[in-house]
Design a protein around this nucleic acid. Structure first.
Lengths: 249, 249
DNA sequence: CGCTAGCTTGATCTCACTCAATAGCAGTGG
DNA sequence: CCACTGCTATTGAGTGAGATCAAGCTAGCG
């Protein structure tokens, strides 16, 4: 079943019953090609989307045409839950790769809200997790240099992909171009390239055609000043995400 | 009554009944001196705070001791509502000035949640408003230069203070030092000073001992690429915040 | 096989940082 | 009343991280 392990990630605390309630709220599943804008800024929305497969971005367009990413979503993320209380978004939500998403009408969410206050709080929690990530992104831009920013982003993605079983703790697929990473870290593609080379020469990580391999996780974590507490992971996953405990096997 | 106009700001859409429910949920009011950490990162919390008077910051401390502001709150903001679903915070909440806050126990919020789903959605909305501001702060750091960042921050504070009646649309009290502004905009105090001078020489704004006066609001808005849609203000306030309509009187 | 998107590398420039010094101003205590 | 302390604002000179501009390389693909 497509949606079987959908909410495995942040909603790990969900009971089977709660998971079922959410899965039953799915009206249908949609596919979109890379580059498609799922939710344009400012337009009223009456349904929220849950990411099944691919990567989704939140981005803000400057009037001069440049754009900046303010968030990246991985499968299992309830991408657009924000739209439920907000009703319209202050930013765009777009597909970074080809994606498959589940659509949940707000009417169904209202029913859930009336029926189950604990689950409602879990959903609320999920949207605040995005806010926590935003704060860390602010920190990244404000306090880290180019190398640290990229390292920090790689640590974050590793941790998040680990939490959904899409990373083994050191190697994962990250189909983003260096220009995309530049839009995350507020760097030019040229400079991202130099940073990646530096990290490679330091023996910390390595990328080959959208597969990223972290060779020295503790080193990368230290360089990035990465502390995954803001992801609210369980202790074991957090330990694996920082390399403070042996990787499995 | 102290709390009379407490929720005038973002919660402007609240009915009298809803406002009353919230005011009745206030357990007590506290005062804290500038610099006091209201909620330290990582410690479990069982009550949320609503800001009555003064300025409150959200900030992240880097391991090297430097710190960065990821949010500023004005009176009327439900500062710490995040803590209700999160239970512990990923960052610190501190008093930038002497402050007075109302304390609302999570038990009372649970009662509200069970009793009134529309109000719950409004509360949820308020926390997402903070997330929307976070996104704009990311944009500010990522896409604007020093002058634009400071200008953007001043525009934001003007708009938010306008929404609570603490700015007349051009002049307001902002008790932040240039170093504080630097921690918001990721600039050194020295450079903030130069930027303030530039804005002064451009005839855009002016500060005298914590009173900020915006002289050319449309000019400042244009320079900062400021668009207040992310604050979800009503149309009239938004227009006044950008100077696209005549200021009152 | 040519085209396009993405990656790589070099040379130059600039914005904001760092270091350093001075000035203003409030509070405090002798 | 004045010295002393501490905090904030201000200005100058030198430096450096990352942007910009430019060019070449690589690989997938119609």
């Amino acid at each position: 079943m497509l949606t079987k392990n959908l909410l495995r990630n942040r909603a790990a605390e969900l009971s089977d019953h709660e998971r079922n309630m959410l899965e039953e709220a799915i009206a249908h599943v949609q596919s979109h090609p890379a580059g498609h804008v799922l939710v344009p800024q400012g337009t009223p929305v009456s349904a929220s989307t849950l990411l099944i497969e691919g990567l989704v971005t939140r981005h803000i367009d400057a009037p001069d045409g440049r754009r900046h990413l303010v968030g990246v979503h991985v499968p299992g993320d309830f991408v657009d839950l924000h739209a439920y209380p907000l009703k319209k978004l202050d930013h765009d939500v777009g597909a970074l790769t080809d994606v498959r998403v589940a659509v949940i009408p707000h009417a169904s969410l209202e029913k859930i809200q009336d029926a189950d206050s604990r689950l409602t709080r879990r959903l609320w929690f999920m949207t605040l997790l995005d806010a926590a990530m935003h704060r860390q992104w602010i920190f990244r831009l404000a306090s880290l240099n180019a190398t640290q920013r990229v390292a920090h982003f790689l640590c974050e993605m590793n941790a998040r992909l680990l939490a959904i079983g899409a990373s083994d703790g050191s190697e994962f697929s990250l189909p983003m171009t260096q220009a995309d990473i530049g839009e995350v870290c507020a760097l030019t593609n040229v400079h991202v390239n130099r940073v990646m080379r530096e990290l490679r020469e330091l023996g910390m990580c390595q990328t080959r055609s959208s597969r990223t391999q972290i060779i020295d996780l503790p080193g990368l974590v230290a360089k990035a000043l990465f502390d995954p507490h803001y992801l609210y992971l369980n202790a074991e996953t957090a330990a694996r995400a920082t390399g403070t405990t042996g990787t499995p096997q």
